[in-house]
Design a protein around this nucleic acid. Structure first.
Length: 728
DNA sequence: CCAGTTTTTACTGGG
DNA sequence: TAAAAACTGG
């Protein structure tokens, strides 16, 4: 076997990790050190050199994007289809296992997955049913409690209230919530993992089977694993006295990039791994191939403020590059305008738009940038935020399909029972709900039973709804998937309902619904699992809520939250909104742990940049309709000044880069420069004497300039046409 | 019961 | 600001 292609192009540390002997392995891989390369090459190495069957390899990631990338890279390296390999997210793999073993876990075959949105809805409903005040029992708190317990592998039954009445109530709610989910055959995200864990734990045969099967478990972003995910790994890779000598985990992680503590991730798993697998081989990847020296130095200095790091010395042999640039904006509009002007420069110099990324702490910040990009006619693409399958109209359509597929799905029932309105009001639903609760049955069953005792009018409306669902069910049985979707959105009246909605909004919704049909048409179910296509499609919709939007192929500026930027790299990066309270976020400021996580997030952001990094913050920012004034982020101060260059066009006039209000800079430059006026220009005025142009606004006859006159206290705005300024 | 209006509330992050 | 919830007249 010629192993050179597998190892060529790798540095010593990478090569050592890829070709490591078959033993538990931990790779500490700094940002931009070739982590994904090592993982994919290791898989190829196992298959081609160690002659390991692709069947016995399980590769787990956290995001669909990472899983997809790994799969395609491995495919192109091995030149064979990667189907026998199991590659996926934790949730995707758990789902697959549950579809295979639904009987053993007491799930109905048609079980459905609910996303966080559905979960919150379910909890609200539960609180209402128990007459609990939402002000006292915040649904989000309850949800957080339940998910945190599940992430730790705990069921309501094994929790103690510790004499705390609040906790006691939370535990009760957890139990009631779970009962409700079980009854309607619904699992939430955390439940997917917990179920599989319990399946393996309680079922020795199955455990032995999967231990034998998956001897090689590769895990990406190991620092982000939570308790249950780690417990999973241990169950899969522990030795089985009779059947298996123990699996060979290959974990890759970076403690400095641990940014998911809030969803239960435990960096300590990196330490625990070394204790649990004695003789673990440790490799460190410390050479960074991504960023310039300045960017890397800034990032290193920043992260050095964290305590308890495993310690890494990230270095590069590349050039120093440009300094990191810092821009202080007046407000968020100004911040966006600045970014747009830099983008224009980049593009004018022949750069590609998709080489540029605008990163922000929270998705809400994207709007200002979107508006600015839109008016500047620069194509862009927003990742995250509201995704396709999370749109209300799409969830409505999916709810019809889910209810048709699985009548016990109460959440879907409630969602669409009166959408479009069909005369089934709150009072009717209360009756049905009461009945369902009293008889512990599904809303569907309760509705059937209630018709008789309801008034004639309400009863017939309800009956019509039940009949509609049954009818749809019959009608679509034999149809191919996309026609099922198409038929349901038409025959349910959903499409007509949204068509009536006036304005662009309704139009967009109709478009989205049609897009759903297209998505169904293009959907290719996993060949291996023998689910009905509809079930598979529904699960796909929840698990991969649809990253790709239209125009994905067009060269466009990339916008995303810092969290979703992890694992990516861009030549030009804007790290925006660096204000205390926004980033670091207000809710993380109070405890040291939270602050350190924010700092790691900032570290992740800075290390995305390859050639040029801009940091920006606004002195004034409008948040939920109110003006806020925040101090610059403490993270800016933590980067030594020698790596940072401040861009202050209004004061530091030597850099005429700033053009206000998003006016086309080329035109403006021509316009004003024709009169010999540009930013930073010294001018003389008949009355006010000499001064410096610090701002230009408008064009042609409307052009105004702001001039800082020496004699005059403050800067003055002058109409260019009347001021008769002479360049000096 | 419905549709439109006013009031309230909330905004961290992802599978 | 904008979505969700509460309210109100038909």
């Amino acid at each position: 076997m010629d192993i050179s292609p597998l190892l060529s192009g790798l540095n010593d540390a990478q090569r050592a990790a890829v070709a490591a002997p078959l033993a538990p392995t931990l790779v500490l891989a700094g940002a931009g050190s070739g982590k994904t390369r090592v993982l994919t090459h290791r898989v190829a190495w196992l298959v081609q050199v160690e002659q390991v069957s692709a069947h016995s390899i399980l590769a787990v990631t956290f995001t669909n994007k990472a899983a997809g990338e790994m799969r395609s890279r491995i495919e192109s390296m091995l030149h064979v289809p990667s189907a026998p390999l199991w590659i996926g997210t934790f949730h995707g793999i758990a789902h697959r296992l549950l579809r295979l073993h639904w009987r053993e876990t007491n799930l109905p075959q048609a079980f459905q997955i609910m996303d966080a949105d559905d979960q919150l809805r379910a909890i609200r409903k539960l609180l209402k049913a128990r007459n609990m005040d939402e002000a006292r029992w915040a649904p989000k708190e309850v949800m957080w409690f339940i998910n945190a317990r599940k992430d730790e592998g705990q069921r309501a039954g094994q929790l103690k209230d510790e004499g705390d009445p609040t906790r006691r109530e939370f535990i009760r709610l957890y139990a009631a919530y779970q009962e409700q989910c079980d009854r309607s055959g619904i699992v939430d995200f955390a439940e997917l993992l917990l179920r599989v864990y319990e399946l393996l734990r309680n079922n020795p045969d199955m455990r032995a089977h999967y231990r034998r099967r998956f001897r090689h478990v590769l895990i990406d972003e190991f620092q982000d694993t939570n308790t249950i995910q780690y417990a999973w790994l241990k169950l899969l890779t522990s030795p089985d006295p009779e059947t298996s000598p123990g699996g060979l985990p290959f974990a890759v992680g970076d403690d400095d990039q641990s940014i998911y503590r809030w969803r239960g991730a435990r960096v300590e798993n990196l330490h625990q791994f070394q204790r649990d697998y004695p003789g673990v081989q440790l490799f460190r990847l410390e050479q960074n191939y991504r960023s310039t020296g300045n960017i890397l130095s800034a990032a290193n200095a920043l992260i050095a403020n964290n305590s308890g790091r495993l310690g890494k010395n990230l270095w590069t042999s590349g050039e120093q590059g440009e300094p990191v640039r810092l821009y202080t904006a007046f407000n968020e509009r100004d911040e966006a305008d600045f970014v747009i002007n830099q983008l224009r420069d980049w593009i004018d110099k022949g750069g590609r738009r998709d080489e540029c990324a605008i990163l922000y702490r929270s998705n809400a910040q994207s709007r200002t940038f979107e508006e600015a990009l839109l008016s500047a006619r620069i194509p862009y693409r927003v990742y995250g935020g509201l995704r396709f399958f999370e749109r209300a109209e799409i969830k409505d359509a999916l709810a019809y399909l889910r209810l048709i597929f699985h009548r016990a799905d109460d959440a879907s029932f409630e969602r669409i029972v009166n959408l479009p309105t069909r005369g089934i009001g709150l009072k009717t639903l209360d009756t049905v709900r009461d009945y369902a609760r009293a008889n512990t049955c599904s809303m569907w069953e309760a509705a059937g039973a209630c018709i008789a005792e309801l008034g004639a009018r309400a009863g017939s409306c309800l009956h019509a709804f039940l009949a509609l669902i049954d009818l749809l069910d019959q009608q679509i049985r034999a149809l191919p998937l996309f026609e099922q979707v198409d038929h349901v959105i038409h025959a349910s009246g959903l499409l007509a309902h949204y068509r009536q909605e006036r304005g662009d909004r309704g139009e967009a919704r109709v478009e989205n619904l049609n897009e759903l049909v297209t998505a169904a048409r293009n959907y290719e179910p996993d060949t291996e699992d023998a689910m009905p296509p509809l079930a598979s499609f529904l699960a796909h919709a929840v698990l991969e809520s649809g990253e790709q939007q239209a125009d994905a192929w067009e060269d466009s500026v990339q916008m995303m939250s810092l969290h979703s930027a992890k694992g990516l790299e861009f030549p030009l990066v804007f790290l925006t909104g660096l204000e205390d309270g926004l980033f670091p976020h207000l809710r993380s400021l109070s405890d040291a742990e939270g602050l350190e996580e924010e700092r790691r997030l900032c570290y992740v952001g800075t290390t995305r940049a390859m050639r040029q990094l801009y940091l920006t913050y606004a002195e004034q920012r409008r948040l939920h309709g109110q003006d806020n004034y925040a101090a610059p982020s403490r993270f800016i101060r933590e980067i030594p000044p020698e790596f940072i260059e401040e861009v202050r066009p209004r004061i530091q006039i030597s850099r005429p880069v700033y053009m206000p209000r998003g006016k086309a800079p080329a035109a403006l430059r021509e316009d004003t420069s024709a009169m010999g006026i540009q930013l930073g220009q010294r001018v003389r005025h008949g009355k006010f004497g000499e001064g410096v142009v610090v701002d230009i606004e408008g064009q042609g006859n409307h052009a105004r300039v702001q001039v800082n006159f020496e004699q005059h206290g403050s800067a003055k705005w002058l109409m260019l046409t009347y001021a008769n300024l002479e360049p000096v």
